[in-house]
Amino acid sequence: MGASLLDAVMADTLDPAYAQAARDRAKQPDPTGTGRSAPTRRWGQVLVALTMVVAGLLVAVTYHHAVAKSQGRQQVRAALISDIRHVSGMTDDLAAQLEDLRTQVGATRKQLLAATTVGQQALDELARAEQGAAAVAVTGPGLLVTLANADPSADQDPVGGTAQENTGGRVRDGDMQLVVNALWDAGAEAVSINGQRLGPTSAIRFAGEAVLVDFRPVANPYKISAIGDPETLSSRFMANPDVIALASISKAFGLRFEFAQEDELSLPPASTPELHVARADRLESAAPSAGATPGG
């Protein structure tokens, strides 16, 4: 049945009504020999022409609609894109303004505090706290650890299926947490991932396919820079049992996991956490409250 139906569709492409009408005409004896009377024929021509007008109209209207629809979509898209550009430009401006104001505040604070010995002490304390809170940019020698997803073509594992290899060949948040913790443990003084500095409250999380550091996505390959004495760092880092385990895992799954000592690494400041609940004590000097700000 199915095949014959398709056959019928393929074979009888012409409406059978035409053949039927032709046969009827042939059967009818007509004196003129042209088929029908002249007025009927003229009417037929007019009707055919009108039908063709309708067909043309239909095509043109449909075309118009299709074009209008795609244009509307493009317009909405363009509007959204310009909105996004505009707002992110505004965010950038605000961030720059914030940076400016922060520098001003810092300079003013330094000016005011540098005059007295108590103030000087407070400043030193503040500097230490800021370093601990990753609120200032730092440079120095250190260790650069590179973690990267396995190359899709390099997956030559004969056992697992492709889907498993794909997920196995990805760097997960746990791997990065492990490396970062090992670096802290090895005596790193400051750590950043792809230029995203880790502060005291930074988190390394997994959201869908992307690794988020401080809720900002970082992309493969992941370069983790740690500042500290390169010799101690690398020897203690290598001796860490977690790192040894990760190295063997990454070898098994084809991850890229390597590290190198660097003479000069520069890390940007981390985003300072906002204070929502904490409030400065009303004490006699400004020093403790100022010191509490960057630490959160």
Binding site: V48, A49, L50, M52, G56, L58, V59, A60
Partner: peptide
């Protein structure tokens, strides 16, 4: 007729 229809549309 077809052309006229297209132009009209």
């Amino acid at each position: 007729g077809l052309a006229a229809g297209v132009l009209l549309g």
